[in-house]
Amino acid sequence: MKIARFRAGNRTAHGVIFGEEIAEIRGSIYTSFRITDNRHLLSDVRLLPPTDPAELWGPGLNFVDHLEYAGSVFGQEAMPVPERPQPWRKGRNALTGTLDPIIIPKDVAGEVHYEGEAVAVIGKVCRRIPAERAAQYILGYTCGNDVSERAWQKDDWTFWRAKGADTFAPVGPWIETELDPQQLDLLVRINGEEVQRCNTSDMLFGFAEIVSYISQQVTLRPGDLVFSGATGVTRAIAPGDTVEVDIPGIGILSNPVIAEFEAGEG
Rank of each mutant, 00 (worst) to 15 (best):
D185M: 12
W157K: 15
R11P: 00
G97K: 03
T96F: 10
N199W: 05
V245P: 12
G232D: 08
V45L: 06
A263H: 04
S43E: 14
L220H: 04
I17Q: 01
I237S: 06
A120I: 01
G266I: 08
L48A: 01
S212R: 05
V147I: 15
L41H: 11
R150P: 05
E68P: 13
P181E: 07
I22C: 06
G91C: 09
I175A: 03
F63W: 13
V121G: 04
L41W: 09
D146L: 02
R127S: 13
C143L: 00
I247S: 08
Q76W: 08
R5V: 01
P49W: 14
I175K: 05
G91K: 11
D107S: 13
A135V: 12
T200H: 12
L41N: 14
Q217H: 10
D100N: 13
P53R: 07
L61G: 12
E20K: 12
I102R: 11
I122P: 07
F33A: 02
V211I: 02
E24S: 06
H113F: 13
R89Q: 14
Y137E: 14
R34S: 15
A162V: 02
E260P: 09
I138Y: 06
I258F: 14
D202K: 15
I252H: 11
G110L: 04
F18I: 08
I250C: 09
W152G: 03
L41P: 00
L184W: 02
P82R: 02
C126N: 10
E132A: 11
G229W: 13
P50S: 00
I17M: 02
C143Y: 00
R197V: 03
V108E: 10
L67V: 02
G251I: 03
S254M: 08
E20W: 08
R5S: 05
Y114W: 15
G206I: 06
Y69L: 00
A4R: 01
L179W: 13
R26W: 12
A134I: 07
R34C: 08
G58Q: 02
L67R: 05
E55F: 00
D241S: 05
E176N: 05
E149Y: 15
L253C: 05
G60N: 02
T36P: 07
P85V: 02
I22S: 03
D156Q: 13
I214S: 00
I25Q: 11
A4S: 04
G264W: 00
D146Y: 05
I210S: 00
T36S: 05
A208R: 10
I237F: 08
G116H: 04
P101N: 00
A8R: 08
